[in-house]
Each structure stands twice: as structure tokens, then as C-alpha cells.
Nucleic acid binder design. Structure first.
Length: 509
RNA sequence: GCCGCGUUCGUCUAAGGGCUAGGACACCACCCUUUCACGGUGGUGAUACGGGUUCGAAUCCCGUACGCGGUACCA
């Protein structure tokens, strides 16, 4: 019986969590849930120079917001910890040494300056970036070119060194990618990647293989940018003797810029005016602030839904999916091979659909985060939400669409009334006030009937006084049905607003 | 440069040898609405190019072009 499905998301904590990162999380998560497996969060913080304080906590919070919580993580722990590679540092060296003993890797003593000089020296128009590979390794300072005694001496003297994989010459490495099918590489075109750095930390290549093995990962999904280094990883699995435990691979297509070539970056968001990170992020080193999908007014359900459909579909015309439906219907082999351009308009459409489909009660806690007024009666707020939600695309729009339910409008567009204002209309609204004051049951249909009846009695077309009424109550030409608004704000407030505008019009004339 | 991966309306995509290449976003028009939205109906709009294979190709094969990714002691 095959082991339990185990997948992981392994970000390096260097900044905000990008759209593509969240989608990678999502596909991992869906696959794990669908197969009753485990989803692990592993922090790949092996590059000490790029460590950013707070980035890990930020990533954890993003996953929390999206509802994609890991089963094992640095915070939750689990049977295969620690889950931060920096805390696993001592683990990796033995595997690198094991490879050296087996003749699959070697010590290299070249300094950064020497590597730079090598690249400069061997650079030609045909070979623009010379590699540390089978053609050049014998010209460098390593345990392949140095005598055993010299190597031992350098090691004994703690000379800074790295361990590099010894790539074989002219071997085919092939594997089956769950999305792309069979993929082939010739080992002669791959360089001798550094496995263990001079500071004793592993590079990604070593760490990902060792940790995936130790953590019993069965399926490894990651971005397409990793495809070129897949042969290194596959060889490592083989050389370490773990070939039978190697996970199945899937390299996910990239998310591209909407308007130009290349993969989507944070800068595109700044330039085009949409978020790229899941949540607000401030870089602690530069204080640079970047807006997130959460703060710009996205529902996590819509955000996740939108991401799921960027590169995947279930083969039907369905576009709106709950997380549960996605868990049920997701399949990795229906994921696209080609990259997908990000379209912010479509992203907003998903959010709008979710807002329309969710009932006011479900929206209430989300909306509360976006309205400045805190002491609002929940029943009243519920009614307001029900009335305006269809016209809000982002959560941030709720307040602008509903301010007038919570207080007299500060700005009233008198200029929209004035041109067609006359004594007859003024007279009419004074009568309206009287009628409204004496109404027995204050509700939308009753008010509408009464208002229109009064208008026709006075030989005024309802349309000529409906807009003025709206502006009196709302302040401008927007909002839901005017009598629904009147019903909600109540008789006293309705009358007060009409009176206020009436006197405003008198003063101005 | 080299290696790898891609390529269906402007964008996200369906169609895995066989109907007029379907849907969604966006856009346009009309309807609904005496506000603004929602909604409804309709419309514009695509198989990168060239060769094969086949009765028949978006689909299979080869080539070309274009795009993307990689080419670090970064992930």
C-alpha cells in the first residue's frame, strides 16, 4: 500500500507572498485534502543574507487568511520537525559528505573572485555564461584536481570550501512531470551545482531533496522556474540511494504580466494599480509598503477561487467554486502547461460574484473590517448590507455605498436639483413632509404609493420629483431604491433630510 | 549564446481526428430601472506560420517564428 500523500509549500522568507506563491499553496493544499493527505509548510531560510524579519509570520498569516492552513509547520510543529531549514543546518553536511565518499560530489576551494575570473576568461559569443561543469571543472581548484594530500591539508586548515555535485557526462535524465509528461535533460548541459555552501548551509538543491526525503514528501509541486534544476534533484535522489522514495513532480505554469512580457512582479502591481501580494506588506529594511488583496477589499473565498482558475478548470463552464468544491474537483493533470496572464478585471469579477452570492449575515464580519463606524446595531447593518451588496465589487466600496444610512449626508448635490426647481415642487415637498409625518405604517411600498399618488394629484410627473427626493436623502445620484432607503432610515430622519435641503435651496435662491 | 518549457478571441479558457471552434472577463448595442448598479438579450472577436500523416487536423509528426524560464556559494 502506498504511503499517505504528503505535500509541502516551501517558501523562502524574503518578502511579501506573491499571487503565484498563493496559487502554489492552493494546488498543494487541494491535492492533499483530496487524497486525505498532509500539507506541510517548510521555511527555506538557508540564505542568511536574504533573511527578512517578519516575513515568515507574514506568510503564515496569509495562509490563515486564505483558509489554507498547514498540518505541520514551524508554528504547529509535527513529527518531522524542525520545519525551518536554518534549524536543520547540522543535518545536511553528512549527506553532502556521503556523496563525496561515493564519488558523486567533490570539495571545491575556488574563491568568489576565482569563479568570477573563470567566467570572464571562458566567456565567448557561443558560450555566454561558462559553467562550472565537465568542461571546466578540471581547470579549477577542487578535490578532483588537487592531490588527496593537498585536499586533506586544505580541509584540515578549515579553508573555506563548498561541496559540488559531480554531474556525469552525456547521460539522459528523464522523468514524468504530472503536468508536462515526459521531460528529458542531458547531464552534459547541467553544471556542477553547489550543494553545501562555505558557511555550512545547504543550497536549495541539497536541502529540498534531503528534507523532502526526511519529511516523506510524496508529491512535489512548485513553479516552472524550477524545471531546469529538476535533473540535479533527480540525480541527488538517486545518488543518495532514495530513488524509490522520490516524490512525483509537477511544475506549475507561471503567472504573467497583464500587459507585457514576463512573469508578474510586485512592480507591475504598483505600476498598473492592483495588488500582487496576498496581504499588506511593509519591507522592514526599506519601509517600502505594498498593498495586499485582503486590504484592497477581496474576500478570501474569491481570492482563492480566482487563483484556482488561473491555469486550471474542471472541464465545465463552472467558474465559481467553494474551497470544498475545489478539493473535490481539482486535478493536477488538468492544470495548464502555458503561463497565464493576470487580469485584475476578472479578479474583481470573482469578488463581485462572491459578494452577490453570500448572504448579508455571512458578509457581516467581513464588512465590519471596512467601515469606520464601530457602534452600529448589527440588525440595522444587516439590512443595509442586503440592500447594497449587489452594487459592491470590493469590500472597500461598502462604506461609500452606505454612509448615508448612518448619518445625514455631508455633501448634498444641490446643483443637480436647482435647474428644474420651482415653487410647485417646493410646495409638493412641503406636502410630502406632512404626509410622511402622519403615515401609519412606515414601509417601502406604502411610501412609494403615497408619494406617487400625491404627485399625480398635483399634476407633477413622479420622475420630476423622484430625483430631488433621492438627492435629499442620499446626497447624490446613486444608491438603492429611494423608498427602501426611506424605510430604513425612518420617518424622523427622512423628514429631517427633506427639510434640510428645502431650506438649503431657499437660502441659495 | 546554450539548455528546457510553452503557443486557441484583447485576457482566462473548452473542444484530446469528425456539427456553423463553446463559455467567462472586458468592450459595444438594446431591454429593465424615472438614480447608480444588479439583471436580461444580442453583437464584435481566436486555432502563430509552413510542411507533412489522414477521407477528415486546433487536436498527431517535422520545421520555423515568437514568448517564457534557467544558465549564482538566491530561492
Amino acid at each position: 500500500m502506498p504511503g499517505k500523500v504528503r505535500v509541502r509549500f516551501a517558501p523562502s522568507p524574503t518578502g511579501g507572498l506573491h499571487l503565484g506563491g498563493v496559487r502554489t499553496v492552493l494546488y498543494n493544499y487541494l491535492f492533499a485534502r483530496q487524497h486525505g493527505g498532509d500539507f506541510i509548510l517548510r521555511i527555506e531560510d538557508t540564505d542568511q543574507s536574504r533573511f527578512v524579519p517578519g516575513a515568515e509570520e507574514y506568510i503564515v498569516n496569509c495562509l490563515q487568511w486564505c483558509g489554507l492552513q498547514p498540518d505541520e509547520s514551524p508554528q504547529k510543529g509535527g513529527p518531522y520537525g524542525p520545519y525551518r531549514q536554518s534549524e536543520r543546518k547540522a543535518l545536511y553536511r553528512q549527506y553532502a559528505e556521503q556523496l563525496v565518499q561515493a564519488g558523486k560530489a567533490y570539495y571545491a576551494f575556488d574563491t568568489p573572485a576565482e569563479l568570477e575570473a573563470m567566467r570572464e576568461q571562458y566567456k565567448t559569443p557561443e558560450n555566454q555564461s561558462p559553467q562550472y561543469d565537465h568542461r571546466l571543472r578540471m581547470k579549477m581548484r577542487n578535490s578532483l584536481t588537487l592531490s588527496p594530500a593537498e585536499t586533506k591539508r586544505l580541509l584540515d586548515e578549515d579553508t573555506p570550501h563548498v561541496i559540488r555535485i559531480l554531474m556525469p557526462e552525456n547521460e539522459e535524465v528523464k522523468f514524468t512531470d504530472m503536468i508536462r509528461g515526459e521531460v528529458n535533460f542531458n547531464t552534459s548541459t547541467v553544471d556542477d551545482k553547489v550543494l553545501l555552501k562555505a558557511d555550512g548551509m545547504p543550497t536549495y538543491h541539497l536541502a529540498v531533496v534531503v528534507d523532502d526525503y526526511l519529511m516523506k514528501i510524496t508529491h512535489a509541486f512548485r513553479g516552472e522556474e524550477w524545471l531546469p534544476s529538476a535533473p540535479v534533484h533527480i540525480l541527488l535522489w538517486k545518488y543518495l540511494g532514495w530513488e524509490n522514495d522520490m516524490p512525483q513532480w509537477a511544475h506549475l505554469p507561471l503567472i504573467l504580466k497583464p500587459d507585457a512580457n514576463g512573469k508578474l512582479s510586485k512592480r507591475d502591481g504598483d505600476r498598473l494599480g492592483f495588488p500582487v501580494f496576498a496581504m499588506n506588506w511593509t519591507d522592514p529594511r526599506t519601509n517600502e509598503f505594498t498593498k495586499g488583496f485582503r486590504e484592497i477589499g477581496f474576500l478570501p473565498q474569491a481570492f482563492v477561487n480566482m487563483l484556482a482558475l488561473l491555469g486550471w478548470n474542471d472541464g465545465t463552464d463552472q467558474e465559481i467554486f467553494t474551497l470544498e468544491e475545489l478539493v473535490q474537483k481539482f486535478s493536477i493533470d488538468r492544470v495548464h502547461k502555458g503561463g497565464a496572464r493576470f487580469d485584475y478585471e476578472k479578479a474583481k469579477w470573482f469578488n463581485h460574484e462572491w459578494i452577490k452570492r453570500m448572504d448579508a449575515a455571512a458578509l457581516l464580519p467581513e464588512v465590519k473590517n471596512f467601515i469606520p463606524k464601530k457602534d452600529i446595531d448589527e440588525d440595522y447593518l444587516l439590512k443595509v448590507i442586503a440592500l447594497i451588496k449587489d452594487r459592491c465589487t470590493l469590500l472597500t466600496e461598502f462604506w461609500d455605498q452606505s454612509k448615508f444610512f448612518f448619518g445625514t449626508p455631508e455633501q448634498v448635490d444641490l446643483d443637480a436639483i436647482r435647474p428644474k426647481w420651482n415653487a410647485a415642487k417646493e410646495e409638493f415637498f412641503k406636502l410630502v413632509i406632512e404626509k410622511f409625518k402622519s403615515v401609519s405604517s412606515w414601509n417601502e411600498p406604502g411610501l412609494e404609493t403615497m408619494f406617487k399618488k400625491l404627485a399625480s394629484e398635483k399634476n407633477i410627473k413622479p420622475g420630476e420629483v423622484l430625483l430631488p427626493l433621492r438627492i435629499m436623502l442620499v446626497g447624490g445620484k446613486f444608491g438603492p431604491g429611494v423608498f427602501a432607503i426611506a424605510e430604513l432610515i425612518g420617518e424622523k430622519e427622512t423628514v429631517a433630510r427633506i427639510e434640510r435641503v428645502l431650506s438649503g435651496l431657499q437660502q441659495a435662491s
